[in-house]
Amino acid sequence: MDTFEEFVKQIDNPEHRERMEEVLVWVQETFPALTPKIAWNQPMFTDHGTYIIGFSIAKHHMAVAPEQAGILQFSDDIAKAGYDYTKELVRFRWDRPFDFSLLEKMIAFNIEDKAECSTFWRK
Rank of each mutant, 00 (worst) to 15 (best):
R17Y: 14
N13G: 03
E104M: 06
I111P: 07
I107P: 08
T3V: 15
K59A: 11
H16N: 10
H60M: 12
A79S: 14
E18A: 14
T30Y: 04
P66A: 06
T86C: 10
M106E: 10
A81V: 10
Q42D: 03
W26P: 11
Q10C: 05
S101I: 03
R96K: 10
K114Y: 07
R19A: 13
A81P: 14
G70E: 02
E67W: 00
H16E: 10
W40V: 05
D113C: 00
D77V: 08
M62D: 05
L24P: 07
T119D: 01
F120N: 00
F4C: 14
L89P: 05
A108R: 15
I78P: 07
N41F: 03
K37N: 05
T50G: 00
G49T: 05
K37A: 07
S118W: 02
K123L: 03
I57N: 13
T86V: 04
N41S: 15
N13F: 08
E67F: 00
E6Q: 14
F4R: 14
F45M: 06
Q42M: 13
K80L: 11
S118I: 03
S101E: 12
R91A: 12
P97K: 05
A65T: 05
M20D: 09
L34C: 04
M44R: 14
T3H: 11
F120E: 00
A65L: 02
K37R: 13
L103E: 09
F45A: 01
L72T: 15
K114N: 09
W121P: 01
